[in-house]
């Protein structure tokens, strides 16, 4: 059979990974959303031809090694400080594109102050916020976005409001701030939502080019390892349990709150 296949160099290439993504094998668990988000981000940077003008800020968390995979200049921030680091870069290089890539603990717990104030200043940056409701890298502890009743290693009986308070809907909070120009909640677990996410990223970079101000894209994502599920189970669980708390869609477009906002 093999001998009947045409030689490789005669095949037409119909799809390739973006050249802005390195060849380093990713360390993410099977089924994790990080890989898709990385790829889409790099695809957009390639399509917009802004590789030489983009500086990324990596967080502390599972995506701490984002710079292994993204072939662009990057800085590694301390836990929670990515929005401040991105501010420092952007204020020195206002004509470059600057994004930070942060998880829920980084952005909505230890970095809440930096997150809110960067948004409130209308920093002309893009913040990618991966919300998987758990601390993946440290082994599955409660996140600020962990939903009520959800079991983690530090909420073995499930998150309850009396001791742990409520899931922190920081994206809704940020949408209220006048400095925030574009705030949206996306996902990457099916081809359709991946396409939506890519549109959102493209839009956000365009806004940054036009100096519109702060853009936040939350990605509600899964964590099969932390949630102790198979990838398929985790996607189903996410749709059934996470989406009702964190509904997908735009919260703010062109500086105006959308009606869909929950």
């Amino acid at each position: 059979m093999n001998s009947e296949l045409p030689p490789l160099d005669s095949l037409e290439c119909v799809w390739a990974k973006p050249s802005t993504l390195t060849d380093t094998p990713m360390h993410y668990c099977p089924g994790c959303g990080h890989g898709v988000v990385h790829k889409i981000l790099m695809e957009v940077i390639q399509e917009l031809h802004i590789q030489s003008e983009t500086i990324g800020v990596a967080p502390v968390g599972c995506s701490v090694f984002a710079y292994y995979y993204m072939d662009i200049d990057m800085q590694e921030a301390a836990h929670g400080r990515a929005a401040a680091v991105a501010t420092g870069i952007k204020r020195m290089l206002p004509d470059k594109y600057v994004f930070s890539y942060q998880g829920d603990g980084d952005l909505a717990a230890i970095g809440t102050g930096e997150t809110i104030h960067a948004a409130n200043r209308g920093e002309n940056i893009l913040v990618i916020f991966i919300n998987n409701a758990i601390y993946g890298m440290t082994g599955g502890q409660m996140a600020p976005t962990t939903i009520l009743g959800m079991k983690t290693t530090t909420t073995p009986e499930g998150r309850d409001t009396e001791t742990q308070g409520f899931p922190f809907k920081i994206t809704e909070l940020i949408a209220m701030l006048p400095g925030a120009y574009y705030v949206t909640r996306q996902a990457v677990h099916t081809p359709n939502v991946v396409r939506q996410f890519k549109k959102a990223v493209t839009k956000a970079f365009q806004y940054q080019k036009d100096k519109k101000g702060y853009c936040l894209i939350e990605v509600v994502s899964n964590c099969p390892s932390g949630w102790k599920m198979t990838p398929l189970e985790s996607n189903k669980w996410m749709e059934q349990n996470m989406f009702p708390v964190y509904p997908l869609g735009d919260l703010k477009v062109d500086g105006k709150l959308t009606e869909k906002k929950s």
């Binding site: 400080r81 401040a84 680091v85 420092g88 952007k90 104030h117």
Partner: peptide, 20 residues
């Protein structure tokens, strides 16, 4: 820039110094 805290200030210095 007068910023929200010394934590933010030193991390902005990090980013800005890193930008050269």
């Amino acid at each position: 820039m007068q910023v929200e805290s010394e934590l933010a200030a030193i991390n902005m210095v990090y980013g800005a110094a890193g930008a050269g």
